[in-house]
Design a binder for these strands. Sequence first.
DNA 1: AAGATAATTGAAAACGGTTTCAATTCATTT
DNA 2: AAATGAATTGAAACCGTTTTCAATTATCTT
Lengths: 337, 337
Amino acid sequence: MKLREFAKQLGLSPTTVSRALSGYPEVSEATRARVATEAMRLGYRPDINAVRLKTGRAGAIGVMMGRSGEIHFAEFVSGMAQRLETADTDILITPITAHNDDDEIQAYRRLVESRRVDAVIIHSPRPQDPRIEMLNSLGVPFLVHGRSETEHVHAWLDIDNEGAVRRSTEHLLDLGHRRIAMINGLRGKTYSIHREQGFRLAHQERGLTADPNLMVCDKFSDESGFRHARSFLERANAPTAIVAGSTMTALGVYRAVRSLGMTVGQDVSVIAHDDVFPYLTAENMVPSLSTTRSSMRAAGTRCAELALQLIAGRAAEEIHELWPVELILRESTAPPR
Amino acid sequence: MKLREFAKQLGLSPTTVSRALSGYPEVSEATRARVATEAMRLGYRPDINAVRLKTGRAGAIGVMMGRSGEIHFAEFVSGMAQRLETADTDILITPITAHNDDDEIQAYRRLVESRRVDAVIIHSPRPQDPRIEMLNSLGVPFLVHGRSETEHVHAWLDIDNEGAVRRSTEHLLDLGHRRIAMINGLRGKTYSIHREQGFRLAHQERGLTADPNLMVCDKFSDESGFRHARSFLERANAPTAIVAGSTMTALGVYRAVRSLGMTVGQDVSVIAHDDVFPYLTAENMVPSLSTTRSSMRAAGTRCAELALQLIAGRAAEEIHELWPVELILRESTAPPR
DNA sequence: AAGATAATTGAAAACGGTTTCAATTCATTT
DNA sequence: AAATGAATTGAAACCGTTTTCAATTATCTT
């Protein structure tokens, strides 16, 4: 059903009906109520594409999705959805399939220049991330989930990765551990750099030096956790504690520890960062896993809110949120043997 | 830049430019090439909303996302993206937040009646799923990932859940197990029913009866795997083998087995269904996990393809794909003690 | 009750493309 | 060279809304 037709059935002009449905003030309450009721009854709903064309608003936020099945992705998007369902705003998923930066830039251009989205959210930036300058020059509101060191203005929300790992490492050092390994995230990402910084700082504060041979970067997966932990623990001068990048990594670490006939929380302490996945909880692991915790879902919800604010005109330079991280001690960390 | 302006710069009419870019045959090759080059150079790109309005095609496929962080979701969508990136078709995520069917139906109406999407994909249907009749009556092309028993016509793609569990169970029975437990998926979903059927059939074929006390339904998570396995194994007449719903469930099952001082593959056999997540591989578990395997990402890719075919006009009644499942035996299944 | 003001309503012009139909150009045939 | 048909191009209508501006109706003053 079209507006024309619907308006005629009501004996009103399309103008008035449009105004009534869009909440304009100059329409009488009686009329508005009648229009709303009838729209429901007759099932009239504006063609969103006409609305978008006319208003210039796409009513959608774009999210870039990396090629590799990202474990965080579903939680983040689900969090976004929670905020956006009352905002009549859609979530548009765009795959980043590109192998070179140029292809990636084309993907953004497509989104923005053809007016598919009003704002874009990008993840896991690098310190000098070309995407940020790109989006800036495209003139589209965008939010960075994570941080970058680029001088270009950008709104961002990040968790305190440095503080998180600093605190986990301090905790392990306080327990008496002196050889601590870290299985970090992907090399080059800002969050990995921050985590490494936290790791080093905790050591420095105590006059110690983090051992570069005990630091490694890799993707967050059970398999990489296993492989690296195993390699660490088989060395002559094996670490007595391991800082893992995610609960999934920790899973592999646990496995590696067991596979060598050792016990987590006794022979080796393990602590990890937990993004809070409903299907894998640190508390339930055996032994329960000490973590730094920050909900990925909550980040998604907040990022959606901030993106809406950007669209509404809030300045990017005033949107910088650094979320603290909870330290939760459980059974997997204890003094070294 | 608008079409008018761009066309003027080229000294052509908007008509010709539009045709050149849309690949219509009646435009000379020379002109087409020039238009394409200049579009690239000057950065012209049609406003997608105008195109959508005029052509009536939304250029997007809608995917419903359950509220609870679904572990399968990212992989499925990522698979879809792989197919859709060359089809100039977007993926629209819509949260199903509804607690009652009515809200859910409203969500579909919104998608379809306001022409946001050309097709919809729904997941995990129940045997009598009201969504199917709903989408049918809305007249939108839709694809069901999973199966339903409704008499309403619908296109679907499903894996052979019954066959998968039948084969895993047969395998366990062949090894000599007689008390086998199953930790199934969510109650009421068709896939859970099919799996239960496979479980029962494998028993029946051998003149045995599946024990209803050893069958339970729950969500796929590490935690539920642990809880149920634990409860099974603590019973007087404990099972010697467990069929788990997912690798995540299996993780919990492994944990439960260990927590009771037993060993997977020796005291208890475990087999699970594996949707193939890049961050958690059955092969790497210790002991490596026997599975029935079917790639969720591949399903996403194929569902996207089928959705495009539906949009192109292919009849729903001729789209029914039942995917076989691989049985992969590893170390977690062995004869009972 | 008339005049002024405020509250509602409607007509028509966009928004930026696509597509129908008609006009023009070009190549081919006689 | 004229006639014919094919290949290109363009003018204008239209997709379904929103919004500007003008017109109408209701309410309030005096």
